[in-house]
């Protein structure tokens, strides 16, 4: 009996493997969960892109939900999502805070002048310190922060209207705004 069991073993191992593979098919390998989700949003205070004598801090926006968008003029995906950000800025009154990541001030300002400015305020993160606090892998990334100051969602890669509808709006609805 024990000997027979030995011959069944490869089959059982394979069934286990197949079960994992089935599940693997339905996992999205590009979805990287952020430990930030559910945690209080990291505070930041950055020099304002337009006027470096002033500071942009997300502390000023607590009490209502807001978006944080990490971008740079060097990033192709940021140009891709720019239209979407403009749409969101136009259609909702949700403030969008920009973190201009490892960029050059003149280039960033020209970008906003040419393509339109969806941001309520933009902080310049030249050294990438703030991006590290926020666990940014690469631009663009977009965070949704709730009224209680907790991170509700993180989107990696260019934002799409589809992702906005599916991932952001329902979470925003729970905020009652």
């Amino acid at each position: 009996m024990m000997r027979k069991l030995l011959f069944v073993l490869p089959g059982i191992a394979f069934i286990l493997l197949a079960a994992f593979l089935v599940q693997g098919l339905f996992l999205d390998p590009s979805r990287i969960p952020s430990p930030l989700i559910g945690a209080p949003a990291p505070q930041f205070a950055l020099p304002d892109l337009a006027d470096s004598s002033r500071q942009v801090s997300n502390r000023d926006w607590t009490g209502s939900p807001y978006l944080v968008n990490v971008w740079g003029t060097w990033c192709a995906g940021c140009r891709e999502e720019h239209e979407v950000l403009l749409d969101i800025a136009r259609d909702s009154d949700l403030p969008i805070l920009g973190i201009n990541w490892k960029d050059q001030r003149e280039l960033a300002l020209r970008w906003l002048a040419e393509l339109g400015n969806p941001y309520s305020a933009v902080g310049a993160d030249l050294e990438g310190r703030v991006a590290i606090d926020w666990g940014v892998y690469g631009a663009p990334e977009t965070f949704l922060v709730g009224a209680d100051g907790r991170v509700l969602w993180k989107h990696i890669g260019p934002l799409t209207l589809e992702a906005w509808r599916v991932d952001f709006l329902p979470r925003l609805a729970g905020q009652g705004s």
Binding site: R3, F7, P10, G11, F14, A18, V22
Partner: peptide, 23 residues
């Protein structure tokens, strides 16, 4: 999904045959 189904049919079938006949 198709390849996985195929995989299960081919490998699963062969290993069943193995468990049945090899002893």
């Amino acid at each position: 999904l198709f390849i996985l189904g195929f995989l299960v049919a081919v490998i699963g079938g062969a290993l069943t045959l193995y468990a049945w006949r090899a002893p």
